[in-house]
Write a protein that binds this DNA or RNA. Sequence first.
DNA 1: ACCACTATCAACCCATCGGTTGATTAAGTC
DNA 2: GACTTAATCAACCGATGGGTTGATAGTGGT
Lengths: 206, 206
Amino acid sequence: MDHQTRRSPAPGERKRDPERTKARIVEAAIAEFGAKGYAATRISDIADRAGVNKQLISYYFGGKEGLYNEIARAWHQRGGEMMDPDQPLADVVASFVMTTAEQRAQGKLMVWANLADGTPESGDAEFMRGQVARLAERQAAGELPPDIDPAFLMLVLMAAASAPLVLPQVARQITGEDPESPEFARRYADQLARVVRHLSGGGAHG
Amino acid sequence: MDHQTRRSPAPGERKRDPERTKARIVEAAIAEFGAKGYAATRISDIADRAGVNKQLISYYFGGKEGLYNEIARAWHQRGGEMMDPDQPLADVVASFVMTTAEQRAQGKLMVWANLADGTPESGDAEFMRGQVARLAERQAAGELPPDIDPAFLMLVLMAAASAPLVLPQVARQITGEDPESPEFARRYADQLARVVRHLSGGGAHG
DNA sequence: ACCACTATCAACCCATCGGTTGATTAAGTC
DNA sequence: GACTTAATCAACCGATGGGTTGATAGTGGT
């Protein structure tokens, strides 16, 4: 039960430090929003987890909604760095799985946003299209079967990659293992990579 | 904007009809819970949509939580009927996609439940295992590659099949089409079936 | 016609929650 | 070291929303 329990600055640290405070709030908010979703999250819970007075959320971010938007914006901004076009697709997908596993709360946050009706479009359409274009290149290069629309394949892969995030209960029931554990992530990444390889190579490994 | 707008019983209908009322409430609740998730749903919205006084939700179901549990229970109970083991896997998956497309709210409800920390396990583990066992049979019969764990493949397929439900915004950004439309469901089902066929036949169709 | 009972509703109640206010104290500045 | 400004907090406020209460009106039985 100790998610970074480090309130009341260690002796020698600054007593007042807006950057540190803001960072703590953001971190706590990601955890809370990710775990429960926007509506179910109490700003007092965020404040408690951050070890800080709840008023500071208004002070620094303009309230619950402002804080949420800030997080979404940051995520959205820094989102476009993964996915190296030079790696084999199987590896790209596997590393995507590992990334989401390391930042479960962040990933779940994105899914919450997708799921809720009436949330402002949160992803980056430009980025998505770019990824699809790369899939199309792979297809043209013969790395993928020609009868599959790259856009839809992209969707399939994204959904599949986020399975341990999105369907943890189903995952547990199916496999009997803990979908939040790092080992699970590794195994799942490996298995998904195999699936992709079967697609790429028509059954051949390598 | 008319989602079954039929309050105030048509002339000739019974004025009081507990079954009808309960059914309306359940139907409205599925829609509301599915759209916004449990926490963000207002019981007054459910009542309004059902064309009924909000107190009846307490009267018949013991409040918001009772209503939710009732729905989850019913879903869980009637869940295990799909998935014919005699069809080819590609067709099974495709029809699963179509089913979720027809009952978006129901499906989203299940995903909400999966996503939220601290929701009681909602799926039927027994059923899941059964499905995995069938996948294993298919694998033994040579219909699936031997180097993939059937349990994980099951998870991949379920996640992929629910992509239009779970990631509608991503779907829209990637494809430029409306992921809620029936045409989209058809196309997606078709494409996913192709992917599965590539897995099954190592690239061969039929 | 009367009665008992159940379904339904409008109005109210109160806990919760996000936000605000005003005071307090640490950090710079000259 | 006085003074200013920024950071932090405890206490309060208003709105929202789930639940409850008490009254009313269909409905079926006699």
